[in-house]
C-alpha cells in the first residue's frame, strides 16, 4: 500500500484550503451532581479546512469527543462563542455534517443494506440514482456480498465499514469520526486507514477524526492536532501531507510520532 505513494509525483500545489469550521471561543460545560460543572472545553479556538482530513489526538478524557460533537452541532456550547460552520453558528445537527459515534452505530434490526440506506430517502437525487449510489457505496467499502447480513453477524471491521458507508452515502459535506477503529486489531486498522484514504480520494469529503493512536492520526490525516490539558488546549498542530507521512517507516514519520508521543505522555 505504501510503496507506490513514495514514488508518486509531488501532491498538487498546496493551495491553502478554505476554512469550513471556525471554532470561536467555544466553551462547553456539563453540569455535575452537587451543582458544580465540568468544563472540558473553555475559550477554545481552531480552524478546520475544507476538503482535508484533520486528526485530533489527545489523552482520554481531554475533551476530544466533546469537541467533535460541537463540530457536528450535537453539543452547543455557551453563547459567548461557538462553532462557525460556513459562516454561521451551529445550533443543531445538520444533515450536512454526519458523525460516526464510538459505539451503538448500526441499528441491530436492519440489514447492512438497510443500515447503509437509512438516510438515503433524505438525500438528493432520483430514487433510482440513490439506489445506484447505495449499491456503489456497498461495493466501495467491500460489503456488497454481506449486504443482506445483520449487524450481529458482522465482524468489528465490517460494522465500522457499514457505519462509514451509511454516513457517506448521503453525500455529506463533513464526516466526523470518533475513534472509529479503536476496537479493531492492527491489521484490520491499517486496512481501514487505506480504505478511508481511498474514500477521501474519491469524494474529497472534509473529515475530522478523533483517535488515540498516533500512527493512525499521521497516516490518515493531512493535519494532526494534538490536544491536552484541562481545559483542552492545542499542544501541537502539524501538517502531515506528503508522501513521508504515508509510510510509517519513514524517518520523518517516526520522528513526528516520537514528538507527539512525548507530548501526550
Amino acid at each position: 500500500m505504501s510503496a507506490p505513494l513514495a514514488t508518486a509525483p509531488a501532491a498538487p500545489a498546496p493551495v491553502p484550503a478554505p476554512p469550513i469550521f471556525k471554532v470561536d471561543r467555544l466553551t462547553v460545560a456539563f453540569p455535575e451532581r452537587g451543582g458544580t460543572e465540568v468544563a472540558p472545553i473553555v475559550d477554545f479556538d481552531l480552524v478546520v479546512e475544507a476538503g482535508r482530513i484533520t486528526c485530533l489526538l489527545g489523552p482520554s478524557g481531554c475533551g476530544k469527543t466533546t469537541l467533535l460533537k460541537a463540530l457536528g452541532g450535537f453539543v452547543v456550547g455557551r453563547d459567548t462563542g461557538g462553532v462557525v460552520y460556513r459562516g454561521r453558528y451551529l445550533t443543531e445537527p445538520t444533515p450536512d455534517i454526519v458523525m460516526i459515534f464510538q459505539e451503538h452505530n448500526l441499528f441491530p434490526w436492519l440489514s447492512v443494506r438497510g443500515n447503509v440506506g437509512f438516510g438515503l430517502r433524505h438525500s438528493p437525487g432520483e430514487p433510482a440514482a440513490r439506489r445506484a449510489r447505495l449499491e456503489r457505496m456497498l461495493g466501495t467499502v467491500g460489503l456488497a456480498e454481506a449486504a443482506g447480513r445483520y449487524p450481529h453477524q458482522l465482524s468489528g471491521g465490517m460494522r465500522q465499514r457499514a457505519a462509514i458507508a451509511r454516513a457517506l452515502v448521503t453525500e455529506p459535506k463533513v464526516l466526523l469520526l470518533d475513534e472509529p477503529f479503536s476496537a479493531l486489531d492492527v491489521t484490520l486498522r491499517r486496512r481501514m486507514h487505506a480504505l478511508l484514504r481511498a474514500v477521501w480520494t474519491e469524494t474529497r469529503t472534509t473529515m475530522v477524526m478523533v483517535t488515540h493512536s498516533v500512527e493512525e492520526a499521521i497516516v490518515v490525516g493531512h493535519r494532526v492536532v494534538v490536544l491536552g490539558g484541562r481545559p483542552a488546549s492545542v499542544l501541537l498542530d502539524v501538517p502531515t501531507e506528503g508522501a513521508a507521512y504515508r509510510d510509517r517507516y519513514d524517518p520523518a514519520f517516526l520522528e513526528l510520532q516520537k514528538r507527539i508521543e512525548s507530548l501526550i505522555e
Binding site: G72, F74, P93, P95, I97, V98, M99, F101, E103, H104, N105, F107, F118, G119, R121, H122, S123, R166, T170
Partner: peptide, 14 residues
Amino acid sequence: IPEEYLTVAANLGA
C-alpha cells in the same frame, strides 16, 4: 434506548 440511535437517525435526516 441508546441515545446514539436517535442522534444518528436525526443526523441522517429523519
